[in-house]
Design a protein around this nucleic acid. Structure first.
Length: 194
DNA sequence: CGCCAGATTGACT
DNA sequence: GTCAATCTGGCGG
């Protein structure tokens, strides 16, 4: 089942946590699939690490729930989904997935053979899935080019940490990941809040 | 227009 | 473990 718009129309941290174990699908030359294993929640102007200050990003973030927004950092595209209703800026970053289907295309795009190197980071995942700024604003609650299916597996534990790589974080941990999964980008919580 | 930070990655010691 | 390359948007001159 494709996750409906109302799934995303809730608090970003809750959506981030519940996206773990869900299946992200991209319609490409072949169908690409991966299980989401790591996410982070972001808010609006009250969040020092948020990209809501960027005009076009802030506009999408403040729009309806369930839209894609893509942003480049250090030469990498990062894939996010808006949460909360229109007028409230919030979103979830997909940081890592476990490859399920279409690994040969992913290998080709990544230029790597090792499966562990295909999608174990936010920039790696977008490169493997062929996601870039063209997908900005895409509705992911419809069965279009990119969409997310509900959890199939529930046998995992969720761990929580502060967000990775941000210079100034908030007071609560907003990163969620599946405990023990080998595609999580930083298995050991190296970085933490400032 | 130049400069620079940044939700990163990969090559290297 | 360290460190430089990466590209776009924001800001100062």
């Amino acid at each position: 089942m494709v996750l409906p718009k109302k799934f995303y129309d809730r608090d970003a941290a809750l959506v981030a946590e519940e996206l773990l174990g869900c299946i992200i699908v991209k319609r490409d030359d072949e169908l690409l699939k991966g299980m989401i294993v790591e996410t982070e929640a972001y808010y609006g102007l009250s969040d020092p690490a948020s990209r809501a200050r960027n005009k076009s990003i802030g506009e999408i973030m403040g729009g309806e729930a369930g839209r894609a927004f893509i942003y480049m950092v250090h030469g990498n595209w990062l894939f996010n989904i808006t949460t909360m209703k229109k007028g409230v800026q919030a979103g979830v970053l997909i940081r890592a997935v476990e490859p399920i289907k279409g690994m040969e295309i992913m290998r080709k795009r990544r230029g790597r053979e090792n499966i562990r190197e295909l999608t174990s980071g936010p920039g790696k995942f977008t490169q493997a899935f062929g996601i870039d700024s063209r997908h900005n604003g895409l509705r992911i609650y419809r069965r279009e080019e990119i969409y997310i299916e509900g959890r199939k597996e529930k046998n995992f534990q969720v761990e929580r940490s502060y967000r990775i790589g941000v210079s100034r974080d908030m007071d609560i941990p907003l990163r969620f990941y599946i405990k023990g999964n080998r595609f999580v980008s930083f298995p050991k919580n190296v970085k933490k809040s400032g």
